[in-house]
Design a binder for these strands. Structure first.
Lengths: 153, 153
DNA sequence: CTTCACTACTTGATACATCAAGCAACCCGA
DNA sequence: TCGGGTTGCTTGATGTATCAAGTAGTGAAG
């Protein structure tokens, strides 16, 4: 691993600064349009989207947290708010008393339907209108490898 | 711009999901090691680093905010905390009464010196140990173009 | 020289993320 | 079957981000 160089050289810096810019600015940009359109943060929206694609639109909290790139604690707080707003319902897991199952409600489906078009428009205009298909694929692959590193750490 | 397609296709999705994973997980990973080593968030650390490289280690708040990828309001709150801890000093700008100048203090320089080695080690182990020089350059270029889009919006 | 719009920044309220602690349920070996 | 360790989740406290509103300085038109 990382043989103790004192600092990043110019080439590394030229890659690092824009990457920092990206990870600091993209979440805010995504939040903004979703917040305006349907009053959800991007994380909340992501929770609902993941649920939407799950079997029976239902999933264990910890699996959901993992797929949403968040901690279980964060998800638990968010789930409480979403449940209060009727977008999601929690119930005890019948096969494991420790687990909680989160399920999408009709209200949640409805919100997703309202949110999707605007969100897709945002994502396209920020990412896929700028990048060729090949470039997008490269970006995804590089991102995937870095995420794997983060998870390993 | 963005001709109304209803949702992302499989290829786009395969790029989008890891990218989201990256922007959601990297900030936390960076925060963690800095918080442990010197009790600073990555944003706070970034503020000090930018100041360190500025002329006279001094900069107007709004320029600083821009370079740190944050809002002026966010920087203002952070600057208050950093000033309280003696890492930074604010003073009135002599040539424009509206502006505030932020300057790095000895304490700030000292903290940077303590924080840098561990931070560099983290960044290397997450990014530059994983990527070839060529890949890092590509990633930086793609990130830069997306950031430009975000700023334009 | 005054007014009006704009820029630079700060502040306070609210909402959110994070961390540590806690509580059950489960699992497994003795 | 009981004890200790682990897993899954929740909660409460604390700190931080965000938004809207406010203050004050500036520049420029009339």
């Amino acid at each position: 691993m990382s043989d103790e160089a004192p600092w990043l050289d110019d080439e590394e810096m030229a890659a690092w600064l824009p990457l920092i810019g990206l990870v600091m600015r993209l979440p805010g940009a995504l939040d903004q349009s979703l917040r305006r359109d349907v009053g959800l943060s991007h994380f909340e929206y992501g929770v609902l989207v993941v649920l939407e694609h799950a079997e029976d639109q239902t999933m264990r909290m910890s699996d959901l947290a993992y797929l949403c790139n968040g901690s279980l604690s964060r998800l638990s707080h968010v789930a409480r708010r979403l449940e209060k707003d009727g977008l999601l319902r929690r119930s005890a897991c019948p096969t494991d008393g420790r687990s909680t199952l989160a399920a999408l409600t009709d209200g949640g489906r409805e919100v997703l339907k309202r949110a999707a078009p605007g969100h897709v428009r945002t994502v396209r205009s920020l990412i896929f209108d700028e990048l060729s298909r090949e470039e997008a694929k490269v970006l995804g692959d590089l991102a995937k490898r870095i995420v794997a590193r983060i998870q390993a750490a």
